[in-house]
Design a protein around this nucleic acid. Structure first.
Length: 592
DNA sequence: GCCGTTTTCGGCCCGACTGTTTTCAGTCG
């Protein structure tokens, strides 16, 4: 059983335990272990064999035994037993907003309800309102929640969420009563998908109510699910939930840190404040541990902090950029001055892997190049599909040569501006790991992006061997969308990314961050490891239109989440440097 | 279930909002 499967078992264990009313800290132990295992650097089988599991933070004697059992037998007795006691319908029911394990268990035990459909029927019949602790309003909310769940998956692509959030932030910023405001939550951390939007505003207490009222009446607000003094929640058209918190300006930095999360980062930060400084930390500030009568909300923070930087400093930590706040080692690094200086959007000078009308793009090469130049880039790589991609109008050997001549011609024109088009191909990796062009044709390109576009169903070993074989081919420059996933739509194919990263490192090959908002692939969780193995990254929008070039910004966000610095990303090189690098990777002497 | 120069037992981050209560449980982040 692989790491991902074991993590999934532990995650379900956490949910099952919660449903059975287990100790919440025990639940958390399983949930934390799931996260730890999923992003583990070392090979699980090795750790099991050498009995070093308990050396991992959060893995004790019991969990180590369970991991060992899963690795060795592919099963977990405790998991099977627990699962047998939990009706399967409860699992789907707790996906309803504001309907958690306790309520699911109650309706199951008292009404025999074991599915969302049954719950809906019971609500309509008024049977749920009659239960203790429930009422007419709860019943209506459950029905509304079921409808919301059915209409929307509950999560949204980053760019969708951003497009909805930006005008709301602007509307808040324009209010004269608002002192500071920001987006917080997973959008600020640049997660690949977003559950809901979090807005934070600082203002005088006397103005808070009016700001709340304006917020819940903004255009696009479909319904109001909560409306309090400091917090309101609304559902926007399109089904995205948005929360607004209003605090005083003294509290703003603390609230921003708090609502940016992640929850796991916050827990680690608070535990640290308690342990090292005997300070309790919440969204209002620091207060002396255990002294409830000196709570920060009423008495101000024991340590005043105007910015998040000052909060980290108060805990003897370097500032942790939002993208890194995932409790994946950032606090240790912040303590030791070992945080990376992250890449920024302005560091980008060009990009690879873009399409044109030669295959399935919407724009000519010239229009794409002009758009890239207008964005301030110095070069653009065009990598249209290879011949096997018939539905995408993939190019055969004859057409790529024609395309090469057009690019040569365009480059003479663009040379005046110091701009350059690189001639590439997005070459299919065929089922056996061979490439869609012969070696002679592959020689005409400046670079080759090798991608899997079909045969997703193969087993892990075969797929891994297929991709690694392609990466080892001397003509290949970089790997396109490493796992083939489509966020919220299609799971990735089975592949051993650790082996892929190792192969890329061995052959000096690049792996892309495909910045298309549906892909964001290779996943950010793998990049620190790839970076440390010496693998360089290329941030590519996979643009099929001029607008798609904007995705570069999301790609940079994902690179930042992956701890990448300017020097780890080839798009930060100058035209000259990158031309030399591409030539070097192909084992040819540089002409420049 | 994990963890430990205050503890091998007794802690484990903390608060807002809602709906149901009449002091709180459940849910969420």
């Amino acid at each position: 059983m692989n790491r991902k499967q074991i993590a999934a078992v532990f995650e379900e264990m956490a949910v099952f335990l919660e449903l059975t009313g287990a100790n919440p800290f025990r639940v958390r132990a399983y949930a934390n272990a799931a996260r730890t295992i999923e992003t583990l650097e070392e090979d699980l089988a090795t750790l099991v064999r050498e009995q070093r599991l308990t050396a991992i933070k959060g893995i004790g004697k019991d969990l180590a035994a369970r991991i060992t059992e899963l690795v060795e037998t592919g099963q977990l007795k405790a998991y099977e037993e627990l699962r047998a006691t939990v009706p399967p319908g409860l699992l789907e029911m707790i996906r309803i907003p504001n309907f958690g394990p306790k309520r699911a268990k109650q309706v199951h035990d008292q009404l025999g309800i074991d599915s969302i459909d049954a719950l809906e029927k019971a609500c309509r019949a008024g049977r749920v309102a009659a239960l203790g602790g429930f009422g007419e309003k709860s019943q209506q909310k459950i029905l509304a929640g079921i409808e919301q769940l059915r209409r929307f998956s509950g999560r949204h692509h980053y760019h969708t969420a951003y497009a909805v959030a930006a005008p709301i932030l602007e509307a808040l910023r324009e209010l004269s009563t608002v002192t500071r405001c920001s987006i917080a939550g997973s959008l600020r951390r640049c997660r690949e998908t977003i559950g809901d939007l979090d807005f934070l505003v600082s203002a005088k207490p006397a103005d808070a109510d009016e700001i709340m009222e304006i917020f819940v009446q903004l255009p696009g607000v479909e319904s109001v699910s909560a409306r309090g003094e400091t917090k309101s929640s609304v559902i926007l058209a399109g089904g995205i939930q948005a929360d607004l918190r209003v605090v005083t300006d003294d509290q703003y930095a603390f609230a921003l840190s708090y609502f940016t999360g992640s929850k796991e980062h916050n827990i680690a930060l608070r535990a640290r404040a308690l342990k090292q400084k005997q300070l309790s930390l919440n969204e209002y500030g620091f207060s002396p541990a255990g002294e409830k009568d000196r709570a920060a909300r009423d008495h101000g923070s024991a340590v005043r902090c105007r910015t998040e930087e000052e909060i980290y400093r108060a805990l003897d930590l370097d500032y942790v950029p939002p993208e890194l706040r995932e409790d994946m080692g950032e606090l240790d690094a912040a303590e030791n001055g070992a945080l990376p200086r992250l890449i920024e959007l302005t560091n980008l000078r060009g990009t690879f892997h873009n399409h044109s009308t030669w295959s399935d793009g919407a724009e000519t090469i010239e229009a794409m190049a002009e758009a890239a130049r207008d964005l301030g880039l110095d070069y653009l790589g065009i990598a249209d599909h290879s011949k096997s991609e018939r539905q995408a109008n993939g190019l055969d050997e004859k057409r790529v040569r024609q395309q090469g001549r057009e690019i040569e011609k365009l480059n003479r024109k663009f040379a005046r501006d110091g701009f350059r088009i690189f001639f590439g191909t997005e070459c299919d990796i065929l089922s056996d790991g061979s490439l869609d062009f012969d070696d002679e044709t592959l020689q005409i390109f400046d670079y080759v992006v090798a991608s899997v576009h079909g045969g997703f169903g193969m087993d892990r070993e075969t797929m891994t061997a297929r991709i690694c074989r392609a990466l080892a081919h001397p003509a290949v420059t970089m790997l396109g969308h490493a796992t083939g996933r489509l966020l919220l739509r299609r799971e990735s194919y089975e592949v051993d990314l650790a082996a892929v990263i190792e192969t890329a490192a061995t052959h000096g090959k690049i792996i892309e961050i495909n910045a298309h908002p549906y892909r964001l692939d290779m996943d950010w969780r793998w990049w620190k490891r790839a970076r440390d193995a010496g693998v360089k990254c290329s941030i590519n929008p996979d643009a099929h239109s001029i607008d798609d070039l904007q995705s570069l910004a999301i790609g940079v966000g994902i690179a930042r989440k992956g701890w990448l610095r300017k020097q780890d990303v080839i798009n930060c090189l100058t035209v000259k440097q990158v031309a030399k690098l591409l030539a070097t990777i192909r084992g040819r002497a540089s002409s420049s």
